[in-house]
Design a protein around this nucleic acid. Structure first.
Lengths: 234, 234
DNA sequence: CATTTTTGTTAACGTTAGGTTAAAAGCCCT
DNA sequence: AGGGCTTTTAACCTAACGTTAACAAAAATG
């Protein structure tokens, strides 16, 4: 149950309302990041992967639409829900133009918001991921299929990878021959950087090394205090 | 540039409002069929293929929800927009349960309706590419006829499949050799994603595995926490 | 060169997801 | 209302996963 919480970026400048809404969403099993304005919202958006963004339209410095546009430029897929203070037609239309998935007029019913969130996230889930390229890697004589979570050596029998093994190896592969910082894996995969998650990660590195043993040209090197490096020799 | 007009089924008992709305939609390049009540709505629905249904909730004889349920039984894919007279939370929630794509409170802004229609139809269009109208599959030595709901091994006696068995196998076949996410089956077939529907799905997987046993090259693999994969070896 | 910190590795443990079968509940059709 | 089919729920069991502990080795520190 702990594992697959959906992540929501909530950008709302009203501190009271924002906090209450955040707590409400968290009570309903979402992982919520709360940003107090558009600027901060974009920073947090860049740092993490979210399943949904809830943006207040009326905000100082950077309004919700502008933020949405920036988000769309970076990642065209994240669903966006706008919160508008009043029923302004122009706002609604503008919202849809930017690529909103829905909008809600304040004040709104919290249960309705929940339903919308659920519906939208489910919708996204049913859209089949077709660009398999991003999930396939060649690592020496290995083929990593990160979507189907298996690792094959030399075209032989594939070995199944657990979610964490898979994610970690994928991150390493993305940085092949380059440093993959500890912190990166911990924040992206474990979503927490502390002593225990760090040790856990070391355990997984050991597992991966075992898997990769068949090809002596492939190894995972440690860079003390920094992270790891997946190298393919020659 | 003679494009195919999108077809909308409008079910609305108020004759004035219904006619105006129909004309408005037609002016915006939709082909509209107007039914005056739920009964008539279902008749017309059965006769034709529509890209979208707009249903009034409050109607004599057969309300919008009941109609929606019937429509869903016949064709689980058509997008549905509900028109509700007032903001009744229960209505909204009920709507989403039936699988509504959106709802609008009367009175609503006509431009907003247009935007929603456009957004929804577009969404459906991109979605439909993958699970296009396909009802016959070859799965190893099996033939699946998803319309007639039977599965035949090696040209022998066909086995009858129950609706759920059929739908599930069809979804797996559509994603042959690829991941068929749990979530996808649960939302598309069971329309709800919880512990019990999930367990129910596992039961069906077991049933399908039994059916598929005759061909050792065909198997349904599990990808822990993600879903299932129908593979045909070699 | 002794000490602290970081990493390597293995094993044990608790928890959750999935496999399977059977019984119960729901439906439909007379 | 009863019989046949479908679907859900329950129960029990195994497999898969991730975390933590424990101990060893390596690297940095000073």
């Amino acid at each position: 149950m702990e594992e697959l919480k959906k992540r929501i970026l909530l950008v709302e400048d009203d501190p009271n309302f924002g906090t209450v809404l955040k707590d409400y969403l968290m009570m309903n099993d979402y992982e919520v990041t709360h940003a107090k304005n558009g600027m901060e919202g974009f920073e947090k958006f860049k740092k993490d992967d979210f399943d949904l963004c809830i943006l207040d339209v009326m905000m100082p410095y950077k309004d919700g639409f502008t933020l949405a546009k920036e988000i769309r430029e970076k990642n065209s897929d994240v669903p966006i829900i706008f919160l508008t203070a009043k029923t302004m037609k122009e706002d609604v239309l503008k919202g849809y133009k930017v690529g909103a998935d829905d909008y809600l007029n304040k004040p709104f019913d919290s249960e309705v918001l929940l339903m919308k969130i659920k519906a939208i996230i489910q919708r996204k889930a049913t859209e089949t991921i077709s660009d398999s390229k991003q999930f396939e890697f060649k690592i020496g004589k290995f083929d990593l299929n990160s979507k189907l979570r298996f690792l094959r050596f030399n075209g032989g029998e594939p070995v199944k990878l657990s979610p964490k093994e898979n994610e970690l190896l994928r991150l390493l592969a993305l940085h092949e021959n380059d440093l993959m910082p500890r912190e990166l894996a911990l924040t992206k995969i474990w979503r927490d950087d502390n002593y225990f998650t760090s040790r856990s990660m070391d355990v997984y590195i050991a597992k991966l090394r075992k898997y990769l043993k068949p090809d002596p040209k492939v190894e995972i090197l440690n860079i003390h205090g920094e992270g790891f490096r997946l190298v393919v020799n020659e």
